[in-house]
Simulated scan of single mutants.
Amino acid sequence: MFKLKTLFAVVLAVAGSVSVAQADTLENVRERGVLHCGVTTGFAGFSAPDSKGEWVGLDIDVCRAVAAAVFGDASKFKAVSLNAQQRFTALQSGEIDLLARNTTVTQQRDTALGAIHAGINFYDGQGFLVSKELGVKSAKELNDASVCMQQGTTNENTMADWARGHGITYKPVVFDQFNEVVSAFAAGRCDVFTTDASGLASIRISRLENPDNYVVLPEIISKEPLGPFVRQGDDAWLNVVKWTLHAMVAAEELGVTSANVDEMRKSASPDVRRLLGVTEGAGKNMGLEENWAYNIIKQVGNYGESFERNVGQGSPLKIQRGLNALWTEGGLMYALPIR
């Protein structure tokens, strides 16, 4: 009995130490002086190195915004490149502080992996990319097709469920690395590429030699809400990341941009004044400086600015806002009140 009690005490002590370690993310990040942000191995528009080797994209802007909120400097982050299999392990182990890597929020991921999502920065859905030479107009015509996809993603199960429900047979061609999937499809090793529709748009424009020879089929077969994850058990850090996203959306709702943010600090609007720290309180609530959101908007921009330059009409992808438009414009983007 004594040994069992001793073992139980040790287990509790270890669990307690892990919990304490996880609960100090904000302090650890500050002491280190740089945010470790998990990103993809290269996904144009979302997280990929540019011609100068600097990481850019919609997800990278989440890294930059959190760095701006914590340090007042959006450049104080390190992009840690991860594939789909590595991403949650890296978060659980403490290798990264934040996972900002086009990751679908699911019940299993939010409850069973020691991680929790901190919001949605892109509403997506799984689709299909094919060569026009295949001669199909609908995914329902893909019976007996070979389908390229990445292992360890929600795409595998979603594809299997959809095909079973529509009585379609297919040959899965599965790879560990996203770049391997792209290369295999480009080389004609499979008839179809299935992943999130945003990914298909990115691949078509940035990775295929003749983009006009390919088409994204009209079917969207799943809900794929994408967003950043943090470790469970660290509410203070969850608050920082969650409210960073809300600040970017709130800024767009209120008409605050990187260009006018200094002038908007003179606004009489109570909502604008709270957002920008003129009226104090929001920063103190999270252990941040009162100008945390001002720094985000000044250095990164509001959500609309980030969307347009990375994946929207100001980018090669030219993705329509759609579900990612503000709620006042028919979309799902809605900032919780900062007050």
Rank of each mutant, 00 (worst) to 15 (best):
E95K: 04
M264Q: 15
S222P: 09
V14Q: 00
C148Q: 01
S47Y: 10
G199P: 06
V14F: 11
N102G: 07
R101A: 15
V215S: 02
G255D: 05
A184Y: 09
F307G: 01
S51P: 03
V39T: 12
V66R: 00
P225T: 02
T158C: 05
Q150V: 15
A250S: 06
V56F: 07
Q86C: 06
R231S: 14
A201P: 01
I221A: 04
V240T: 07
L58N: 04
V66P: 00
S202N: 06
T169P: 00
D176C: 01
G330V: 06
V215N: 00
N157W: 14
V70L: 01
F175A: 12
K298V: 08
F185W: 07
I319C: 03
T41S: 05
T153N: 08
S183W: 11
G42K: 05
N285T: 12
V311C: 09
H246K: 06
F185M: 04
Y303C: 08
S146H: 09
A293F: 14
N28F: 11
W292F: 15
A187S: 12
V300R: 00
M264R: 07
E305Q: 12
F88A: 07
N239F: 11
A23P: 10
S17I: 14
V181R: 03
A201Y: 08
E31M: 06
T89G: 08
